[in-house]
């Protein structure tokens, strides 16, 4: 079994799927149900929501280190949260990601394999 990181991208200008608390609650429950199912099937190893701000970017410019508000200027997407799952290979990891409600509500899921020794 390998580990995969599912990075949940969403558009910068859309922090929430809806401002209606009932809709937000419903969407959150769908995520929860998915996470619970992944755990029950032995796939989920962890996950967290990231805060709704755009984060910071720390970089060097010559000798100086500078910190600016994220995301990268050219990016139109933010990572809103992540899951860590275990799967046999990319094919299975992507297959699992396909059932995640994130696709329906926010946008893309970046699937990355964790390099192991």
């Amino acid at each position: 079994m390998s580990s995969f990181m599912l990075l949940l991208h969403r558009p910068v200008d859309r922090p929430r799927v809806s401002t209606d608390p009932a809709v937000y609650t419903q969407v959150s429950r769908e995520y929860m149900a998915w996470a619970d199912r992944m755990r029950a099937e032995g796939h989920l190893k962890g996950g967290n929501k990231l805060t709704d701000d755009s984060g910071r970017i720390v970089r060097t410019a010559g000798e100086r280190v500078s910190t600016t508000d994220g995301p990268y200027p050219e990016s139109k997407e933010l990572v809103g949260g992540f899951f860590l799952i275990s799967a046999r290979d990319y094919a299975e990891a992507c297959h699992l990601a396909e059932s995640c409600p994130h696709l329906k509500y926010y946008g893309n899921i970046e699937v990355r394999q964790v390099e192991e020794l």
Partner: peptide, 10 residues
């Protein structure tokens, strides 16, 4: 709880 549990399950 709703926001967190969405990503880590119950």
């Amino acid at each position: 709880a709703l926001a967190q549990w969405a990503y880590c399950g119950t």
